[in-house]
Amino acid sequence: MSIEAQTEGDALIIRVGHDRIDAAGAIGFKERIRDLIPGTERRVIMDLSRVNFLDSSGLGAIVAVMKLLAPARKLELAGLTPTVEKVFRLTRMDSVFTIHPDVARGLGNVG
């Protein structure tokens, strides 16, 4: 699974290298991220700029990661590609996440 985490300042950046987060990959995605987040950073920014496709199972997996982090830490998202952005917007889940255009701007904008 090409998902890597790295600390930058007060934030943990999770870079998702997958082309898609779908029903076939959602459970593995969630488990991989669970292993990556035992740190103490206050913010977690998930970089989705390489993910071109997300279905409702993938969306559910991202919500599950948000709940794993809560209430102590917050999950922010960065770099949504057009189809991913559309799924967040249609389901109105864009209203529950802080969404940054990209990681650099997410780091500069303490959310």
Partner: peptide
């Protein structure tokens, strides 16, 4: 039906998306 976003649902979006598209 669209699940309430505030309740942080992990599922139930499938048929909403189908009907929306």
């Amino acid at each position: 039906q669209l699940p309430e976003a505030e309740c942080l649902p992990e599922g139930g979006f499938g048929w909403f998306l189908i009907r929306a598209l």
